[in-house]
Amino acid sequence: MRAPEAEWLGSLAVSRLQVVSGKGGTGKTTVAAALALALAREGRRTLLVEVEGRQGIAQLFGTEALPYEERKIAVAPGGGEVFALAIDAERALLDYLQMFYKLGSAGRALKKLGAIDFATTIAPGLRDVLLTGKACEAVRRKDKAGRFVYDHVVMDAPPTGRITRFLNVNDEVAGLARFGPIHNQAQAVMSVLKSPQTAVHLVTLLEEMPVQETADGIEELVAAGLPVGRVVVNMVRPHHLDEEALRAAAGERRAEVARALSRAGLGGARRGGLAERLVEPLLTQAAEHAGRVELEREQRGVLEGLGLPTYELPLLGAGMDLAGLYELATELRKQGDEE
């Protein structure tokens, strides 16, 4: 069974909440940020939120730690704006208590007793309701003129292993808080999360474990009725030589390669000459490359079997910086428009 199709860039009815998950370290934060930039086109405004208290966004944009407050952190090409917010569960809970119960001192007392700690760190469902609740509030928020304050909210979400549980707060909370405002809040959150307003994207690398996790994650999301968006294959390395060329190079054309190296200014092509001695190690590297290409092909096959639209982002060899982020955003736009 397929999840409801999420809309994407270039389409008029784009999902307003875009959740980015994936195995740890595959590039969730990077892709979420690039996506927020990509969506902030033609004067649109996006909000990039993080929920794990790691200040990953601040690190990526090279700014100081984000307060619990929405801040403009980037301007997209074409004048769109990206705001960012690091949602803090404890603060969200205190705000929440304040809002509903006007609990000034009692809130502090709760905090002192470790109740806040308890509620946010210990009861996982509760914490998740607060985090997703804040994100959904931003999705729904309107200005005085009745327009949405943010065209899109992009969430740098928890990793694949926890994403379904995280988003499926309803089930989680049903076991814990069966009545009361938290329960109601959970219901309100679920009505956004399970609608086509939301798309959950999974970031992966072309390696066995992240791909496997992606497949498992999609299955879980679908089973929970959460809308799956796209698979984003990150850190894709360029392929320089196909296997056929490599076989030829390693076999009958070895001497030609040595001569080509020599012609390119890299020494003598005769046996023992510099160019000739480069051939073997270069071929070894190329064989490793070919092996990897083969593994990547396998993993691509697995991903294709998932039947979801896929984006590919290149590995930026020089490492990540702001320029790289804009490059990835441009790439996402391009692929979104082509879709």
């Binding site: 030589l241 056929e244 005769r270």
Partner: peptide, 26 residues
């Protein structure tokens, strides 16, 4: 390793890809 052939060029497109292209890839 066959001794390189003095003065010969390897630009011939024998396998659809030239030795130069392969080498550039390497």
């Amino acid at each position: 390793v066959t001794e390189p052939d003095e003065g010969a060029t390897d630009e011939g497109v024998t396998d659809g890809i030239t030795a130069d292209e392969i080498t550039a890839g390497l």
